[in-house]
Design a protein around this nucleic acid. Sequence first.
DNA 1: ATCGTATTTAGATTATTATCTAATTATACG
DNA 2: CGTATAATTAGATAATAATCTAAATACGAT
Lengths: 103, 103
Amino acid sequence: MTSENKAFKALSDPTRREILGLLRKGERTAGDLAERFDMTKPSMSHHFSVLKDADLITSRREGQTIWYGLNTTVVQDIMAWVMDLVRGEEKKERPASPKGGTK
Amino acid sequence: MTSENKAFKALSDPTRREILGLLRKGERTAGDLAERFDMTKPSMSHHFSVLKDADLITSRREGQTIWYGLNTTVVQDIMAWVMDLVRGEEKKERPASPKGGTK
DNA sequence: ATCGTATTTAGATTATTATCTAATTATACG
DNA sequence: CGTATAATTAGATAATAATCTAAATACGAT
């Protein structure tokens, strides 16, 4: 599966998007993240692993706790894809969209 | 289901993303779109309906053919969400950690 | 009305995914 | 070592989603 596809699939779940949102401001431990959701820890752990596999988060162990952090590199790829969609749309209407006086 | 969630779910399928990519440059008919994929027309029609339900595309009938077009309003919402993720990250490195609360 | 074309809808099947409980690993500490 | 804590892995189940074939709808032309 392509990196892009993994990322989009990972983003398709609201719980996972919320996890990413919490990581915007910095790292958090698995436990800290888990307790904010109405879901068992194993379920949360599954979501972490999906995000990790999509390279949307980083992880490091510190003693018995694991710290997760946002990895923006893939997020930026996604952003580029979405922006392309909008940008392409701007130049779609065949007759002279005003954009740098061509023609 | 929220609009955001519908959109992300719709975007999670590679076929649907490819459809959107084809619509960047302008409208296309259902048949024209369908023949570019190795998939039956009913399956393609299903994807159209998912995209439509997520408000990612518009549709209008012209005689017996249906024209689909990109609807960028929701795409922009998605873009905003993704950009927030990256922007938040930029200001994250302030690990004075009022959050970690290592208890 | 009948036919042909474009497209969708219905219903079934299969694959994927989210979630749970129970068990396991990893680490720290007495 | 034995116990407690943090987190994951395993295995099962139930809900979603993708896809197909067959049938139906919508429209235009004959």
